[in-house]
Design a protein around this nucleic acid. Structure first.
Lengths: 334, 334
DNA sequence: GAACCGTTTGCAAACGATTGCAATCTGCCC
DNA sequence: GGGCAGATTGCAATCGTTTGCAAACGGTTC
């Protein structure tokens, strides 16, 4: 900057002001300085600027992965969400700093917050990190989490109505005449827990008592899900439907079921959750509960910027929509 | 940091050295300072550190989108690549700064480079930006581009062997007895251009002269591709196969063809390029040329870090593999 | 020509770290 | 006790900006 100052025969302060478009420096001189800077290919150094201004115009997007230790970041759900978030953040002129935390441990969030690399933090999915989020939100405001709200929770979440979504899905299976519906997923994760509640609610609402509820606590990785479903099939547990906690494991389940020589949806109906792009195109196409990630991402970013400017917007819950496709078949006769 | 210094009764220099694990400060005092810092929740301010050290330990990943002006970042190819890149970069302890440039214009790259926000830049896809890349690479070393190499090119690229991949795909269609094969994509983009060359090479190699070559310069967006294919079908141009420049537009083409009452692969065979996750699961599943993004991403990052430490590794070309699925059908009788 | 006012400008102090250099401290030996 | 070496420590400069404050400037007005 001092080079440009020398070139223009003024001080660095003036250059700084000129480049910032300040009206303190005469229009003519301002234009002259801008021209010189452009010609010299000079751009204000962001790091120094950030240090001085105590802000970075950057948002951290964090993906905590509890069970995907050695896995690359390939889960379509995260990746789709990331795309929408990146878009919403970029639109506001901010940068996106991507962080994968795996396995989430120690002081990752306090450290991230204290490091001053970003002005705000978005966490995609609570994973197993509820405690950490709770603790940090006590002193750090610009934090928004995609996930499930819970009663005594001080951090701001944005998420789909997991319970209602799940309930609709399971009710649909019941209406189709399915009797033994397996819940496929690990309810100890907050979001999955709510989906499990929806599953239970649907079962309880039905007049025809169900012969069994069955839960298979598969992790959210394809391999784990495939293995878990294969094992379930070998155990000869009788079931005619699966409500999977995510599309990704639903598709793995379908593959396992098909590989075991059974048919989806004829023998076993499958419903997923998320409506990732794959869901519409898999074979059979997947009935699922749609989360509108575009709206979700925009809501997250709105909330975050609101908090950045001192706001206190509440957590948000988006409605979930059941998308009916081939994987749960038509009504059974019974 | 001076707070911690006061707490420990030493100077800020000593704290800085202690936290950096320097052997200049006595082991005992070092541990003491580290303990104090941890208890106080103190973390070194990254911005200040970056300014002083003149490096950021951050890599920019840029996605230039020429034709997707108002589109969110949803192209599965980019997004999958991004996942692998994020992984490879994170593994080296660096941060990932995500940048979407749309429409790519003006001095986006020089500005990004000069802003000092990152130590290196990865550009996913050349899009229409060959000139810009060329110009910047003249003075900025840590730049690696995913895309096609060209003869007189000074920037470092990593990419799949587009020509050979495309040639294999088209040869496969010819072997199956397809006669009028449409090239679906815009060859003015460098990578697509190479795929077009492969297409031409395959056509020329065949002994049975083909009655027509046809090119439909669709952009790489689903909507545009769908519209282009629909229009082509309405024109009553005779063709029995489509080689699409990407899986995404291949799937859109299939949808358009199906919507027009024709069957894939019976009436029209379709082959894509990329092997995105969707390809295996779409209906019919998509025959395509596989790009190994995991290896690709790792190669990009290797090259980049090599350049960061003064290396001069050459551009790399990865081999392409034809993945045969349902969308091009079995051999026709003729 | 002095006083005054509005417009521009530059000085210098931050922002929060790292590090070369010189100063201090410690222990040891003569 | 003085001298010396080696181990620690702190001073102060530096990274590249921004900005409060005071000074300089230019033009009116009396």
């Amino acid at each position: 900057m001092s080079d440009i100052a020398a070139l223009a025969g003024v001080s660095a302060s003036t250059v700084s002001r000129a480049l910032a478009g300040s009206s303190l420096v005469a229009k003519k001189k301002r234009d002259e300085i801008m021209r010189l800077a452009r010609e010299a290919g000079y751009v204000v150094n962001t790091t120094a600027r950030n240090l001085r201004l105590q802000r970075t115009e950057t948002i951290s997007v964090v993906i905590p992965l509890a069970h995907e230790v050695s896995q690359p970041l390939t889960d379509p759900f995260f990746v789709e969400m990331l795309g929408y978030l990146a878009d919403a953040i970029t639109q506001r002129g901010y940068g996106v700093l991507l962080q994968k935390i795996v396995p989430p441990m120690g002081d990752w969030l306090p450290n991230l917050v204290a490091s001053g690399r970003s002005d705000g933090v978005i966490v995609i999915g609570q994973s197993t990190e509820h405690q950490v989020l709770e603790a940090v939100s006590a002193y750090y405001r610009p934090l928004v989490v995609w996930g499930a709200p819970s009663v005594a929770q001080s951090y701001c979440t944005v998420g789909t109505d997991n319970t209602v979504g799940a309930q609709r899905a399971v009710e649909h299976l019941i209406r189709l005449g399915r009797k033994r519906i397996v819940f496929f997923g690990d309810p100890s994760l907050p979001e999955i827990g709510l989906r499990y509640e929806g599953y239970l609610a649907a079962l309880e609402n039905t007049s025809r008592p169900l012969e069994a509820r069955h839960i298979v606590p598969a992790h959210l990785t394809p391999d784990n899900a495939y293995a878990a479903m294969t094992e379930l099939l070998q155990q000869n547990v009788a079931f005619d439907a699966v409500f999977a906690a995510s599309d990704l494991i639903a598709i793995s389940a379908i593959q396992a079921i098909t590989a075991a020589g059974k048919s989806v949806p004829k023998d076993i109906a499958v419903v997923g959750f998320d409506d990732i792009a794959l869901a519409a195109h898999s074979n059979p196409s997947l009935t699922t509960v749609r989360q509108d990630l575009d709206v979700g991402a925009r809501t997250i970013v709105d909330r975050l910027f609101d908090r950045l400017s001192g706001g206190e917007g509440p957590s948000a819950t988006l409605s979930a929509e059941l998308i009916i496709r081939e994987s749960c078949g038509a009504k059974l006769s019974y």
